[in-house]
């Protein structure tokens, strides 16, 4: 449905997007993740025919964004990141204007406005001027505009920014629902959003794709690195550390104390789970155990790791192996 081949975009000397290629199938929600300045918005602007790429090509529904720009624009609904709207217009008037430019008939516009007003919760302010709306309300107007013509492809650039928690949840539900019938490209840096809504994720950093796959797959790439954490009471730190290090399958051990409890963090060898051995150790020694868990890697860990790697390479430094570090 969406296809990008070697997309590159330069702003003068700055390489904002660097030979990106990807393909998105019909249906489903695909998340584009990346830190600030990664090139997400730039990529999206190329796909929506707003800015042409410096080189490379992109197509939507088989239509090239340069040569068949009008066909692409007919099939795409787009919510830019700053949600630009005409402040002096009323919401209904604005949607009607947009519907006209999309060549919708009078009856279609009326039905579509009724439908999106319902789906995007515009009911309370649909007849108010846009400059009187709050940020979140405007965001919903932008979203309504992006979906009012039932486009094949919906491209949303940070759609939940500025919404209250309830609206965020409802918007995510709406995006998931839309994903059943439309192809959705969702650009964000909110990781839970991706985990909740996306069937696939593309991670961009410094203009390049650094990882792609379902959120589950990305997490799995890291789960080999899951740690085992326990809290025990009884012996002194040194003894805990040496005993734990002797367990088969343990790679490294860290201990720390607080409030009379000793926290043991074990990094097992790949694909090993040492929880049972650790439990047996504590019972054998007669220590009190109050917590024992395996700390799975989160998408956030993955994100921080790949982004840090990319930045490390950029600056010519050795690749960092951060885990839950504070590079965000």
């Amino acid at each position: 449905m969406i296809r990008a081949v070697n997309l590159t975009k330069r702003f003068g000397p700055l390489l904002a997007v660097d030979r990106i290629s990807f393909e998105v199938e019909r249906g489903g929600v695909v998340g584009v993740l990346g830190p600030n300045g990664a090139g997400k918005t730039t990529t999206i602007r190329i796909l929506t025919c707003f800015q042409p790429a410096t080189s490379g090509s992109a197509s939507i529904a088989g239509f090239d964004v340069i040569n068949d720009s009008m066909e692409v624009r007919r099939r795409v609904g787009y919510l830019p990141e700053s949600t630009p709207l005409y402040p002096e217009m009323r919401v209904r008037e604005y949607l009607d204007f947009r519907g006209r430019l999309r060549a919708m008939s009078h009856a279609d516009r009326r039905d579509a406005i009724r439908r999106v007003a319902d789906r995007c919760w515009l009911g309370d302010f649909i007849d108010r001027p846009i400059n009187q709306l709050s940020k979140g309300m405007k965001q919903r107007v932008g979203l309504a505009d992006a979906i009012m013509h039932s486009p094949e492809v919906v491209i949303l650039d940070e759609p939940t920014i500025g919404l209250d928690p309830r609206q965020i949840r409802e918007t995510r539900n709406l995006i998931r629902e839309l994903g059943e019938h439309h192809t959705i490209l969702l650009c964000t840096h909110i990781l839970p959003e991706v985990e909740q809504t996306c069937s696939r994720t593309i991670i961009l950093a410094a203009g390049r794709i650094v990882a792609s796959g379902s959120p589950q797959q990305l997490r799995d790439q890291l789960s080999a690195k899951a740690r085992v954490v326990a809290e025990v009471q009884g012996p002194e730190e040194g003894e805990v550390k040496t005993s734990a290090a002797q367990i088969d399958g343990v790679q490294s051990v860290e201990v720390s104390s607080s409030n009379g409890w000793i926290r043991v963090a074990i990094q097992p060898k790949p694909d090993r789970d040492v929880r049972e051995e650790l439990f047996r150790l504590t019972t054998a020694k007669g220590w009190t155990l109050r917590e024992l868990r395996r700390e799975g890697a989160t998408l956030e860990d993955f994100f921080i790791q790949v982004v840090a790697k990319q930045q490390g390479q950029q600056e010519g430094q050795p690749v960092l192996d951060t885990q839950g570090g504070d590079h965000a």
């Binding site: 602007r45 009008m70 007919r74 795409v76 830019p80 630009p84 709207l85 005409y86 430019l101 999309r102």
Partner: peptide, 14 residues
């Protein structure tokens, strides 16, 4: 200035 050019020029209008 307002960025509405982006929503405008991504519509099927020349």
């Amino acid at each position: 200035r307002a960025g509405t050019i982006e929503t405008l020029m991504t519509l099927p209008i020349s």
